[in-house]
């Protein structure tokens, strides 16, 4: 379990360039939740999640991992980074080896696992993200944009983290790839009962997969609730550069036109059920 107690962060504090990015963010992240983080560019999403594995040190407040302050002197942040796996927003920043396989192996090798285990995890992870063996020996830099992203995700999956944090992992993926990866992450989450935190600009994806949405706005938490609770505020979300899934607008419009749907919908499936039930009455 992760706990953030009034976490604040300012880039270049005390200088003329000081840039406050988080203001006293308090969050409880219980084990096994699937959380979506949304917010306009610059709202503090990336800054927030880089705190979760100790990549940046808060300028105020405390972060607890299983009850321990992660900035305590005797707390191993190196180990924390294998438990809280972070896939960066720009995958090309995460790829550096000469072949795809070496790149994915890097994490588990650093964990001092046995050779066989490293290889098994590598192939499993590559399979999960849909990278076929033709590309195993290719240089990560010669891949298409979407292929690079998949390899970066595989590299983190191979470490089998307890908390998986993904910063806009589906940007640049084709729709089938988006579904494939999110479904794979959903499955892994269920099988291993891990916590997943997904930063995304795709409201449709967030609505489909997560239990809880955290909306960031100017470095603070603006909303925190189930997809339904959050997307009901679709008008307010638009004012802060966001949106709701298209079916939310559609069902809201139908309700305005007097169609007696019980609520707005957030997924296609749910909208279909609501409209079917309404029309068969």
């Amino acid at each position: 379990m992760l706990y953030l107690d009034k976490v604040s962060y300012t880039y270049s504090p005390g200088t003329a360039m000081a840039m406050p990015a988080l203001h006293e963010v308090s969050l409880e992240i219980p084990d096994g939740q699937f959380i979506g983080i949304i917010g306009h560019t610059g709202s503090g999403k990336s800054t927030l999640i880089q705190h979760l594995n100790g990549l940046v040190k808060p300028t105020g407040g405390v972060i607890y991992y299983n009850g321990r302050d992660i900035w305590d002197e005797d707390f191993s942040r190196k180990e924390l980074r294998t438990k809280v796996g972070l896939v960066f927003q720009y995958p090309e920043h995460q790829l550096f080896e000469t072949t795809v396989v070496k790149d994915v192996e890097f994490g588990p090798r650093n964990m001092k696992l046995e050779n066989l285990e490293v290889q098994l995890r590598t192939f499993e992870a590559l399979k999960t993200v849909g990278i076929s063996d033709e590309l195993y020996d290719a240089s990560p830099f010669d891949l298409s944009g979407g292929q690079k992203r998949r390899v970066a995700i595989a590299g983190v999956l191979a470490m089998k983290p307890e908390v998986l944090v993904l910063d806009e992992p589906t940007a640049g993926l084709d729709p089938a790839g988006r579904d494939e990866i999110l479904e794979a992450i959903f499955r892994i989450k269920r099988e291993r009962n891990i916590t997943v935190i997904l930063v995304s600009h795709s409201m449709e994806d967030v609505a489909r997969f997560v239990d809880r949405i955290i909306v960031m706005e100017h470095g603070s938490v603006k909303y925190d609730g189930s997809p339904k609770e959050v997307f009901r505020n679709y008008k307010e979300l638009e004012e802060i550069g966001l949106a709701a899934p298209d079916v939310t607008y559609l069902t809201a419009m139908l309700r305005e036109r007097g169609v007696g749907l019980p609520d707005v919908a957030t997924t296609v499936e749910e909208a279909a059920d609501m409209i079917e039930r309404y029309c068969k009455h």
Partner: peptide, 29 residues
């Protein structure tokens, strides 16, 4: 081809499977 259709199109398509009669390729709300 590994692609998708817009949500509104998908919804009409899904409802057609349940006996509705939306014209093919409904694109907008």
């Amino acid at each position: 081809h590994h692609l998708d259709v817009p949500q509104v199109t998908e919804l009409a398509y899904e409802l057609n499977k349940r006996g509705f009669r939306f014209p093919p390729g409904v694109l907008t709300k």
